[in-house]
């Protein structure tokens, strides 16, 4: 009986931790997606890179870098690598002012984090 109660408490704590971690990841993904979506896309912002574009990209990258210190504890690198590579590209293309590559990297990043969102959502599709 004692073992059963201990197992029940551990199971409840585990469920709570999973819920907490999933909420954190989903919240952080929404935040990152929001910042990425808000990044400037107009051609005028790229020749030369505007202050608005650079500061927006730096803010986005700082949050992604912060997230990359926590995410590897929660998910595998094979899931994070695509988004990480896209975030790095986004930053370098913003600095070099290459609009087409910047937009492609942005799309790749948004798609990658969308996959992560699906994985952490409690939905039938996420089980696959």
């Amino acid at each position: 009986m004692k073992t059963f109660i201990v197992a029940l408490i551990i199971f409840a704590l585990l469920c709570g931790a999973i819920f907490g971690v999933s909420s954190f990841v989903l919240g952080r993904i929404s935040e990152l997606s929001g910042l990425a979506l808000a990044l400037a896309e107009d051609e005028a912002e790229f020749f030369p890179p505007s202050e608005r574009l650079l500061s927006g990209t730096e803010e986005f990258f700082a949050l992604w870098d912060k997230s990359m210190r926590v995410f590897p504890y929660i998910m595998g690198y094979e899931m994070l690598d695509r988004a990480d590579e896209a975030a790095l590209s986004l930053r370098s293309y913003a600095k070099s002012g290459e609009r087409a590559e910047f937009l492609a990297a942005k799309m790749r990043f948004l798609d990658s984090v969308e996959r992560l969102r699906e994985l952490f959502s409690v939905r039938f599709e996420s089980i696959a």
Binding site: F4, A7, F11, L14, I18, Y73, I74, M75, G76
Partner: peptide, 19 residues
């Protein structure tokens, strides 16, 4: 492979086994 990939299923399986 993160540690959580081992810890979460191990703890879940053991709890289920006890239940």
């Amino acid at each position: 492979v993160p540690m959580s990939y081992a810890i979460v299923p191990i703890v879940t399986l053991v709890c289920l086994e006890v239940f």
